[in-house]
């Protein structure tokens, strides 16, 4: 974009060095926890003087942490399983309906993403309390799904709008029924967007803390809720181990997406 100024070396160097510092700022907190998680000490000393796997052990050996991990994974999968099909059908309807109706429904579906988490959390707590669902997996799931729907809609709606609908007409003219067109022509080509939406819905649930903090308890407590309590009370290096595992998982996911998209473009 700035090729007109490619000889302006000083500005270019300044811009790049500044950006490098900003990137360092972004990466630093995620990177710092990795060496700490392998420390043998209770203290958060850096660099660690001795190495060990004791914090990983304390994570995997703790029944409380393991229960929270299991809850979080189950919630993540259920969230994706509910939010993605619901969002897909809604986006399909929006695409076909168009106009003011579609714009209104779209705004409604995205509204949870701009509602402060604390409001959803205490409001949902009120509602669930009436229904006797506080502390249940169903209650937390409802909260997570409602946060995952905007994420899935943001991925799926543009994908459906980009889709060449003449293909659906072509399939119909060649003798395909509505369901054959959906299953054989539309869904296969939206596979990429659907899997992206599912993964992002899963991560949204896995990462969600505020609703879990207010609505979950006991067996429905999620990993972020436990991490929050642990962080607020005392700094337990077990969190460094969890954070490292998390970072590795997310790096894998981001890299996978990047490679896949690159493969798509090639």
């Amino acid at each position: 974009m700035l090729d007109a100024y490619q000889d302006n070396r000083l500005s270019k160097t300044l811009l790049w060095s500044f950006s490098a510092l900003v990137l360092l700022f972004l990466m630093l907190p995620t990177l710092i926890v990795v060496p700490l998680s392998f420390s043998a000490s209770d203290l958060l000393e850096f660099p660690p003087r001795e190495w060990s796997l004791r914090w990983y052990e304390s994570f995997f050996m703790s029944s409380a942490w393991m229960a929270a991990l299991r809850t979080s994974l189950i919630l993540g999968i259920l969230t994706a399983a509910v939010a993605v099909p619901a969002s897909f059908l809604a986006c399909f309807a929006l695409n076909r309906l168009g106009g003011r109706t579609a714009a209104g429904i779209y705004a409604l579906l995205l509204s949870p993403s701009v509602t402060p988490g604390i409001l959803l959390a205490i409001g949902l707590f009120f509602v669930l309390a009436k229904l006797g669902l506080v502390g249940t997996l169903t209650g937390v799931l409802a909260g997570h799904v409602v946060l995952a729907i905007p994420v899935a809609v943001i991925v799926l709606y543009p994908a459906l709008n980009r889709f060449d609908w003449a293909q659906a007409q072509a399939a119909r003219s060649l003798g395909a029924s509505w369901f054959q067109t959906m299953g054989g022509i539309i869904l296969p080509q939206l596979g990429l967007s659907l899997s992206t939406a599912a993964l992002m819905a899963f991560l949204t649930s896995l990462d969600e803390a505020v609703i879990s903090i207010f609505v979950a308890n006991g067996p429905s407590s999620t990993l972020p809720k436990l991490m929050f309590i642990s962080l607020r009370d005392q700094i337990d290096p077990t969190i460094a181990a969890i954070s490292t595992l998390w970072t590795v998982l997310i790096s894998g996911v981001v890299l996978f997406f990047n490679l896949r998209d690159r493969g798509q473009n090639a």
Partner: peptide, 27 residues
């Protein structure tokens, strides 16, 4: 439309990009 038995050639062809040439024609 699927019951009309009409062959249609669309403006931008509307070929199915996830199928081979033969699969498109066999469809």
């Amino acid at each position: 439309p699927d019951k009309r038995d009409i062959g249609i050639v669309f403006q931008n062809y509307a070929l199915f990009p996830h199928m081979s040439v033969l699969a498109n024609v066999e469809y």
